[in-house]
């Protein structure tokens, strides 16, 4: 996820202070690592430079900062474009696992074990997210759902590959 676009999106409903933006970001999106204040202000500077937001002048908020930020029409357009442009599916992990499996078969190593180890790693992460999800508010439940379904897709690929190893081994040996 691009944190700059998420921050810009958080400014769309109403103008906000950097301090409040950082906490809104953490509440919704920082499931594993909070956003650093420095990164928030650096991002806001870039968004001003690019014409997506403006600083509204000096007035005291709840936090330590004095500036309030508001989204521009250009910023709103950018958010509209972002949320309605689908992302390309991420195939990085799949291709890496595929490569490991092929190499394991080529060097006549234990490809089944490799897949079992990866499955255990994925299940461990899924258990972690499932436990967190049981304690989470509804916004975070959605984030964990998303992560869990993506892990599940990998697991299904691992299971199917495991079931196809015999066929794959024959194919690799013939090439």
């Amino acid at each position: 996820m691009e944190s700059s676009l998420a921050l810009l999106g958080l400014l769309c409903p109403q103008p906000s202070y950097g301090y409040d933006l950082k906490h809104a970001y953490d509440r919704f999106f920082a499931t594993r690592r909070p956003l650093a204040f420095g990164q928030v202000y650096a991002t806001l500077s870039r968004l001003i430079r690019d014409g997506f937001i403006v600083a509204l002048g000096e007035e005291a908020g709840d936090g330590p900062d004095r500036k309030r930020y508001a989204v521009t029409d250009q910023g709103r357009d950018r958010i509209g474009q972002w949320i309605f442009t689908p992302d390309p599916p991420n195939d990085h992990l799949q291709s890496n696992l595929f490569a490991k499996t092929i190499i394991a078969l080529l060097i006549e190593d234990d490809a089944e074990r490799l897949l079992d180890l990866q499955r255990a790693e994925h299940m461990s992460r899924m258990r972690e997210f499932t436990a967190l999800k049981r304690e989470a508010d509804i916004a975070h439940v959605l984030i964990y759902d998303y992560a869990i379904f993506h892990i599940e897709a990998d697991l299904r690929w691992i299971d199917l590959t495991s079931a196809r190893l015999l066929e794959l081994r024959k194919d690799v040996a013939q090439r």
Partner: peptide, 19 residues
């Protein structure tokens, strides 16, 4: 796997055996 993730751990049965 989503149901299995509620468990403390999992074992795999394959061809009538657990590795």
């Amino acid at each position: 796997p989503r149901t299995a993730a509620y468990a403390d751990r999992e074992v795999i049965v394959r061809d009538g055996r657990i590795p």
